[in-house]
Design a protein around this nucleic acid. Structure first.
Lengths: 367, 367
DNA sequence: GCGGGGAGGTAATGCGGTTTAGCCAATTAC
DNA sequence: GTAATTGGCTAAACCGCATTACCTCCCCGC
């Protein structure tokens, strides 16, 4: 070390250049630098290029705080996940969603504030704080639910937002944009698949009862079952955990007339259900068919592999982020439908045992 | 609507109050407000209380940009995850880690910037940008790897950071703090467990070869095996995916002398491995014992349930966040060891088939 | 009666940008 | 030939807060 001894602090930590430094080196005023770097008129082409060169030389990047303070834009978006910490299980949905979101944001150099909180009340508080602190320019709202306070809150704050998933039946998204997948149609396709195989007693092991998509799937199942004239079809709700998925499965299998097919609202419960069936000595798919909502590695490592409803969650994230950016740019609130999830038939679904079989219509494996 | 028609813009979106508003309402200067709200001397107790009341009435929150600009603190920390999007699988590790981190940050009202990037190069670029933009006050660095460029980079930038996991053997963390779990000891306990059951041919299906903890586990396994006089012990590396976990398992089982026990570096591969074994007709635990590194719902829904190495990832996150905050407050760089992971024996581990059994030492089920 | 000191407050400055107003020369319009 | 524009640039104000310097009382000691 040849540095002069003395100042106890750590070595000078590389001062960050500001536009003032650029202005000095380029021999122009700070305003000219600002104009040049932001593509605004008011500087000649040659000056513009010189400023850009100097800025690149110095490795200048705009101070996000300064820009936020004057420009009224923080350059960050927010995403809150309201889930008790212990239920942050194995689901890959959110990480994939976030990954898709960031593919879009990274291109525009926008940061994502991500936070996990305990419940919706805490989420509202956090949204309000983010707004008051001007930390974010907009937010993605996930897990829309019945009696959801968030759209109204965001409306009143004037904080641009996109609802990821359709609002609960009978509610509206306020001035929020909505990006959604057609859960009703998807559920119909699942039911059609099982019905086509000859199943009559079908149970849907759903997720959290408060969530909008849960309600929608349940409603769709009921409606479609009625249309098909099936009476032994119903839903039970859970908390999405492997434990409740397994418990629900055990209860169903122990009943007087156990279902011949079960639809699980996520992959974790599906796998747990398969395991519970194995404990009871129920063979898949001979005695029980299983469908998982959302595909993942899990569905491919069980034995047999699980028929699953596949959707491109990363693309969903891209869609949501893109729409939020549009809103920030002044675009109108819209409702955008994502690609319809498709059913990927694997070995976990097959016709029910002969005794249980419905006088089957044409044997259509595909819905 | 009785509002005067006209301005096409959306209804005035609820102006956020500033200290100027507080000053006016409280009848004092802006500086007095600043002093009062920040607990600085220079205002009387009564004024202080009045200011606080007014601020609460107005629902004031400090503008984070303004505070960052003058105070030199952005009030945000960063966490970058360098993983190709498609490998963002089922692992619960990161969400749990983040959840723990946020328990600590939320109390201090610090935000977390979270970003997923493709690789380490992109991560370095992002860290540099966050630094230049002053977006974050510090960062958590996860997945330490061999020849890791990040500690040196952060050192040179003077950006406070905490390494989550020990640096690779032979490297140092620079001026970074380190929060780590003892992978070597944990691996030793796993090997002792299997050896105690009588296993001799043990294979470790590891994760990504570049990661520090992968190298450390491999090294520990080799050393411990040598100490126990076991020659049929080795590691193979993968990308953590279910596909490679299953493929590695198939190769191992098809070999001339298949292992009697396999240690998987994550839960997903363990489950995939179990599935691959089932395909081959290999019975668990009679013919093959399996251990998963990291417990999760997955390990409890397979059949048999998997013996797993349990660690409290949320607590790990809390530890890391706490240490980073200490660094920001001027604390020294430290090396903090997290609680040792413990082995949770379940039904997937048992003595090997008699023919394969080692002239066993005392039959110790526990290491 | 006067200087000193502290308590309680205000005015001014700066952080690093963006943006508005203005200035000066060179064109262009008539 | 003079007025009006325009291009290219600078000076200055501003965003919301922290902080420093200063200012004014009032009380105290002597």
């Amino acid at each position: 070390m040849t540095a002069p001894a003395g100042d106890g602090a750590r070595a000078t930590p590389a001062r960050r250049p500001t536009i003032k430094d650029i202005a000095r080196r380029a021999g122009v005023s700070e305003s000219a630098v600002s104009f040049a770097l932001n593509g605004r008129p008011g500087v000649s082409q040659t000056t513009r290029e010189r400023v850009h060169r100097v800025a690149a030389d110095l490795g200048w990047q705009p101070n996000s705080a300064a820009r936020a303070l004057s420009g009224e834009r923080s350059g960050a978006l927010g995403l809150v996940l309201a889930r008790p910490a212990h239920t942050l299980g194995v689901e890959s949905f959110f990480l994939q969603l976030v990954s898709g979101v960031q593919e879009v944001l990274a291109a525009r150099r926008i940061a994502l504030l991500f936070q996990v909180v305990e419940d919706t009340a805490a989420e509202c508080e956090l949204l309000r704080r983010w707004w008051a602190e001007r930390r974010v320019d907009g937010v993605l709202v996930v897990d829309p639910r019945a009696q959801d306070p968030r759209p109204a809150l965001l409306d009143s704050l004037g904080l641009p937002a996109v609802l990821v998933g359709a609002p609960a039946p009978g509610e509206d998204a306020g001035s929020l944009s909505t990006v959604w997948a057609d859960d009703s149609a998807a559920m119909a396709s699942v039911l059609a698949h099982l019905h086509g195989l000859g199943h009559r007693r079908i149970v849907h092991v759903a997720g959290l009862p408060g969530l909008a998509h849960t309600e929608r799937r349940i409603a769709s199942l009921r409606a479609e079952a009625a249309a098909l004239g099936l009476s032994g079809v119903r839903s039970v709700t859970t908390d999405y955990s492997d434990a409740e998925g397994a418990a629900a499965t055990r209860r169903l299998l122990d009943a007087a007339e156990p279902p011949t097919a079960i639809i699980y609202d996520n992959d974790v419960m599906a796998v747990a259900g398969v395991s519970a069936a194995a404990e009871r000595g129920v063979a898949l798919p001979a005695e029980l068919s299983v469908v998982a909502w959302d595909d993942s590695a899990l569905c491919r490592v069980t034995h047999p592999r699980l028929t699953a409803l596949v959707r491109d969650t990363t693309a969903f994230g891209r869609l949501a982020a893109g729409e939020l950016l549009d809103r920030l740019d002044g675009g109108p609130a819209r409702s955008i439908q994502a690609e319809l999830p498709h059913l990927e038939p694997r070995e976990s679904t097959a016709p029910p045992p002969p005794a249980e079989r419905e006088p089957a219509p044409e044997q259509g494996l595909r819905a």
